[in-house]
């Protein structure tokens, strides 16, 4: 009897929750939806008062312009290279190190892990001036290498993977080792496939960071055909501030890969947050 009443009350409250959440969802998503709509509108519709919300007719002029009238495709390719190297290297190096720190016993492992963790406290702003000088000595400035070398591995990645391997019981690997697999064999055949949720999270965070990085490429790169997408977009927006459709087309194309990656990895996110102890 009381169970019935409780269930009824709860259903009422659920209905109210939709009333709250629909405007919230619209508030967060609307600017991005409008970004896509704007990219499909002719500029004439956008530069008038008040601006149009919906296109009269859909046009791909914005996309055509952004892809042909400047170095946009080149910037896109540059960013693709930087992010691909960053993600690949991050996954391999950080999982190897995370596994080593979690599972293997060797002299200096504690000191090594401590040194890595100390670096988490050091902000990028402190490092950018000496890193610039160092990269100039190495001849990396104004190359794509300057953009991806800082992304080859990270303390956060090592920490994340170590926490994951600590949360997995070691029995499975031990069985494989008895079956005659070497350390590396066990790692690549058993451990890494098991680590999928953690790897997915690492991939998304690395992709997010390297794809959207702005301050470091601004410092390390100065010729236009080595620009990353984010640098290109922010200079482009300064010079062509009324060509909204091509600006938004550029924006949409630059955001789409991250959006897709995020949607694919989304379900792993909250689980990873829990085991990594990131929530505190």
């Amino acid at each position: 009897m009381s169970g019935f009443m409780a269930a009824g009350r709860r259903r009422d409250r659920r209905w109210m929750l939709h009333v709250v959440l629909v405007p919230v969802a619209v508030l967060f998503a609307a600017p991005l939806v409008w970004m896509v709509l704007t990219s499909l509108m002719p500029d004439a519709d956008l530069n008038r008062l008040p601006p149009r919300l919906l296109p009269d007719h859909v046009t791909l002029d914005g996309y055509r312009k952004v892809l042909t009238e400047n170095d946009y495709p080149r910037w896109f390719l540059n960013t693709l290279i930087v992010s691909a190297v960053a993600v690949l290297s991050h996954v391999v190096l950080c999982s190897l190190a995370g596994y080593g720190f979690a599972r293997l016993r060797f002299a200096g492992s504690r000191a090594g892990f401590l040194a890595v963790m100390v670096t988490i406290m050091i902000p990028v702003q402190l490092l950018m001036i000496p890193t610039f000088l160092m990269f100039r000595m190495l001849g990396l400035i104004d190359t794509l290498g300057a953009a991806f070398v800082p992304w080859l591995a990270s303390a956060f990645g090592i920490f994340l993977m170590r926490q994951f391997f600590l949360s997995v019981p070691p029995e499975l690997e031990e069985a494989a080792r008895i079956d005659g697999c070497g350390r590396l064999g066990v790692f690549f055949r058993i451990v890494l496939p098991m680590a999928r949720p953690a790897v997915a999270t690492l991939v998304v965070f690395t992709l997010l960071g390297s794809w959207n990085d702005l301050i470091w490429p601004l410092i390390a790169i100065n010729s236009e055909d080595t620009f990353t997408l984010q640098m290109g977009l922010s200079t482009f927006s300064g010079t062509r501030h009324t060509e909204w459709s091509s600006l938004m087309a550029g924006n949409t194309l630059a955001t789409a890969p991250l959006l897709i990656a995020f949607l694919l990895a989304q379900r792993h996110f909250i689980a990873t947050m829990s085991f990594s102890g990131l929530k505190g």
Binding site: A97, G100, A115, L126, A153, R183
Partner: peptide
């Protein structure tokens, strides 16, 4: 073996943080 696993990432992280700091 242990250092073989952790050295590459540790060198990148420490080399690009502690040394520049």
């Amino acid at each position: 073996v242990g250092w073989g696993f952790v050295a590459p990432a540790t060198l990148v992280v420490v080399g690009l943080a502690l040394f520049p700091a």
